[in-house]
């Protein structure tokens, strides 16, 4: 065992590095939003800190060997936030940051919804309600094989309106998948408005508990909460869900809490204004 492995890691990770990476990822998202095809800006910005915490401090992955058999698995079930995932993967070394400029463009591989052609992407997502069942399958395979690996699935809150999510929630609890952690990006907005106005989710934590999940709630933008919560595996006997309280459009003041930020194709002026706001708030 190496000396490094014996050292106790900081319980909250490298806070300065986390913030630096998160800012870079948010800048990439805005740049992709200013590209030829635009992107789902609001839900990407709300997911950034969760993704950065996972990839920087929690997931056991090898950027230079994405298919490493002993890796932990991450599935971005809310595939609309591809810009956040691609930017995080690039910042963590899975592929060159320069490639982000090819987002959604012909000749490249960065489809605007994630595909496994992109290094680090496990499954194609973007049709909502698939990720949790895929994660349950990966977790089941790992448990049966006796492999010590964890599986993480990030879902949107609006996504929880898909019935297939709850099929998977039942299966994961029934099969006692205590290597599976779900995260809900609870930004409270879907494209048409508030989740509570469109199709009510609350009492959300009670729903997960009733389905047999260990349930906790965290501030989805506070690394001091996110990193320890994500590092802690579920207790033996069942899966865990973190309901991460987040803000749609997080980091760009005039986009925050606004359903209009759901998708944006930013013109040059809108892009400059957004980047300026982002850096001012950082």
């Amino acid at each position: 065992m190496s000396v490094e492995a014996l050292a106790e890691p900081s319980p909250v990770g490298d806070l300065v590095g986390l913030h630096r990476t998160a800012l870079a990822v948010r800048e990439h998202i805005l740049a992709m939003g200013a590209g030829a095809v635009g992107t789902h800006v609001g839900g990407s910005l709300s997911a950034v800190d969760i993704l950065v915490a996972l990839y920087r401090e929690v997931l056991r992955v090898r950027p230079d060997e994405p298919g490493w058999p002993d890796r932990d698995h991450f599935i971005l079930s809310k595939g609309h936030a591809s810009a956040a995932l691609y930017a995080t993967l690039a910042e963590c070394g899975f592929f060159p940051v320069e490639e982000l400029g090819t987002y959604g463009r012909a000749g490249g591989r960065l489809m605007a919804h994630p595909t496994p052609a992109v290094p680090g992407v496990e499954f194609a997502t973007g049709s909502l309600g698939h990720g949790l069942a895929l994660g349950a399958g990966l977790a089941l395979a790992a448990k049966r094989a006796g492999r010590d690996k964890r599986v993480f699935v990030l879902m949107g809150d609006g996504e929880l309106q898909e019935g297939s999510v709850w099929e998977a929630a039942m299966a994961a609890a029934h099969h006692e998948l205590d290597n599976l952690t779900a995260i809900v990006d609870r930004n409270r907005l879907q494209i048409s408005g508030s989740t509570e106005d469109r199709l009510r989710l609350e009492p959300l934590a009670d729903k997960w508990r009733a389905f047999g999940w260990q349930t906790s709630e965290v501030d989805g933008h506070d690394f001091a909460q996110l990193v320890p919560a994500l590092r802690t595996p579920p207790s033996a006997g069942g899966p865990a869900v973190l309901i991460a309280d987040t803000v749609k459009g997080r980091g760009v003041r005039h986009l925050q809490h606004r359903k209009q930020s759901h998708f944006a194709k930013l013109g040059p002026e809108a892009y400059e204004r957004a980047v300026t706001a982002l850096r001012a708030a950082a």
Partner: peptide, 24 residues
């Protein structure tokens, strides 16, 4: 029993879990 899984009366779940298992 180690090669058997019942996913319940849940066919969407059946296909997604099958896909994930196959990927391993």
């Amino acid at each position: 029993p180690d090669q058997y899984v019942d996913v319940g009366i849940a066919e969407a779940n059946l296909m997604s879990i099958a896909a994930a298992l196959a990927s391993t």
